[in-house]
Design a protein around this nucleic acid. Structure first.
Lengths: 157, 157
DNA sequence: CACTAACAATTAGTGCACAAAGGATTAGTG
DNA sequence: CACTAATCCTTTGTGCACTAATTGTTAGTG
């Protein structure tokens, strides 16, 4: 009976690592989105970009990066792919030639209608209630807040 | 007051998507590991492989893939890098030449001592209690279970 | 025993994520 | 105004994740 589930017996045990559960959960949930997004021609990160644009377009690359907590170096090629797919437009801002404005094309806007059923669909697939998902969302956001502030402290040190 | 936090007002709102919170949390927590793992010469996925090996070595590629819920095509190059780093050994099983046995080298075993402080260190960085982390772990595992069984149902259909 | 199935690992190809460096533009300061 | 610093985006390079196709090996079947 030396075993327990607290992680005190073997702190390095795989099953005790939150970072592992988190990575697996993230990959698995995203995998569940794949067959739903694939008919729209979107990957999951591209879907998140489209969500941001449907909600806030136009946005600069920097604003998108802040919203999605991604590096602009990650977004740059992703946005090019969305542009080749005809969903978005990228143009330099006249008043600040450094910035790129990302906006939606007609096709990009139209895609929203086809995406509208996705959240409900995924909820049913997952088999979790709205309350459970909201609770989970809150917990995850709290975790991210803690991790982000810990990262911030490091840079300051 | 048309807004609420249930997601019913705008199901596609970025802040309501669990998949988004999950992806961000995963990336952010892994980012917090980076400065801790980098002195050991490990990336986070490599760290997870080492955890599995410290606990269960020797393991075949298939067993590792099952444990980590990863594709063998992802593990193949990763294991080669760990081998070049001198941490693991890869050899074909004499009794079944299809399989590859992955075992630890002396350096690989020795690295465990340096990794032993990591879980506690990360817990402190995050600023969450052991109970909170256990609770989170349980929740995430439940989520993965739900998502996995949903994926299973799809293949059957 | 020959032949086909299944299985294990690898390879090739696409896309995401991040670090580091670079080019272009704007803002701030003496 | 000239010059430095900051900002924005892109590019390059490395590594992870997944799909599909491939090679090699074992197991099962007629």
């Amino acid at each position: 009976m030396a075993e327990n589930s607290s992680g005190l017996d073997n702190p390095l045990a795989l099953e005790h690592q939150v970072c592992f559960s988190l990575a697996v959960a993230s990959r698995t949930v995203i995998a569940l989105y794949r067959p739903v997004l694939s008919p729209l021609g979107l990957t999951h990160p591209q879907y998140l970009v489209m969500l941001a644009l449907w909600q806030f377009a136009p946005l600069s690359v920097r604003e998108l990066a802040d919203l999605l907590e991604l590096d602009s170096a990650t977004l740059s090629p992703l946005l090019k792919r969305l542009e080749s797919a005809g969903l978005i437009l990228r143009e330099r801002l006249p008043e600040d030639e450094r910035r790129l404005t990302v906006g939606l094309t007609r096709a990009g806007r139209d895609l929203r209608a086809r995406a509208e059923a996705i959240p409900m669909h995924m909820m049913e697939k997952l088999g979790l209630s709205l309350e459970e998902l909201q609770q989970l969302n809150t917990t995850l956001n709290r975790l991210t807040t803690m991790a982000t502030s810990a990262l911030g402290r490091e840079e300051g040190a």
